[in-house]
């Protein structure tokens, strides 16, 4: 089924997730049009990462429905979602530290490789050719995300900022239609964060839909087509960047906390 122009890339309908007594995500709904950059913001503990985990299949929703390119994918495991064009990065890095950087990216291309036991063991010749191609692809992808300096590095020897990009390269290697980025700029310097923003626009320009969780407001406001605000698991607001900026609820819940934090910093 090819995605028509009227189709949403991602549609979250009335999704909830409880952990014991805690409702981490509460009846959240959200539609993401193809090719846009959609941000999800909200204070700490608002349920942003939980929502990501629900969308990418790491958690099952307690109720509600997740649709990917029009298809109901609620409750499917992550590997099945990957096959349908979803990929993501992680807030707490999930790098394969036992591998080189290039190998990390090659795992991203897993679904396009010939990963059958038979050919793995008995057709080393044919495989070697495919592997050379896969290595070339991975290196090109690393260069595209600005990791040209780490083409021969072990993942374990790379600095934090580079690992953030490595996760993006690995996710892109699967040629996703929908890419979830969980705090891609966290812990980065302002110039690094800006260049992540540029990278995101470039990825979106290639037709990849991006859903982004991020605390860096300058980056969010600069890069997003639409923004959803979560607070205590609920969708508080949904709109364009300027609409969100003008929304008084958002200012109260989100920026209010910010101001208190700011005051605390001043008085410290």
């Amino acid at each position: 089924m090819a995605p028509g122009p009227d189709l949403t890339a991602l549609s979250v309908r009335g999704v909830s997730r409880r952990f014991g007594g805690l409702v981490a995500v509460d009846n959240a709904s959200l539609d993401v049009a193809p090719g846009v950059v959609q941000a999800i913001i909200g204070p700490n503990g608002a349920g942003k990462t939980t929502l990501f985990n629900l969308i990418s299949g790491l958690y099952r929703p307690t109720q509600g429905e997740v649709r990917l390119l029009g298809e109901d994918v609620t409750g499917l495991p992550p590997s099945a979602l990957a096959r349908r064009g979803l990929s993501r990065t992680f807030q707490n890095l999930q790098i394969f530290f036992n591998m080189t950087a290039v190998e990390n990216v090659m795992v991203g291309a897993h679904l396009r490789s010939d990963a059958r036991l038979w050919s793995a063991i008995f057709r080393p010749g044919a495989r070697a050719r495919q592997e050379r191609e896969a290595i070339r692809d991975a290196r090109r992808l690393m260069e595209e995300v600005g990791l040209g300096a780490y083409l021969d590095a072990d993942a374990a020897a790379m600095p934090y900022g580079a690992l953030k990009r490595l996760e993006i390269a690995r996710a892109l290697a699967s040629r996703p239609k929908l890419l979830l980025l969980d705090e891609p700029a966290a812990g980065l310097t302002p110039p690094e964060a800006r260049s992540i923003g540029t990278l995101m626009r470039r990825i979106a320009a290639d037709g990849v839909t991006i859903v982004l969780v991020e605390h860096n407001m300058r980056l969010v406001m600069g890069v997003s087509d639409r923004i959803v605000v979560l607070d205590r698991g609920r969708v508080l607001a949904d709109g364009r960047a300027d609409e969100i900026r003008a929304n008084s609820d958002v200012a109260r819940v989100y920026l209010g906390k910010r101001m208190r934090t700011a005051r605390a910093v001043v008085h410290a």
Binding site: S56, L58, P77, P78, S79, A82, R83, S87, R88, F90, Q94, I95, F96, F97, N98, M99, V107, G108, H110, L111, R170, A171, S174
Partner: peptide
Amino acid sequence: HGSETAAEVMGV
């Protein structure tokens, strides 16, 4: 071995 979660998300 490196990360079951990431492997699964990459389609493994």
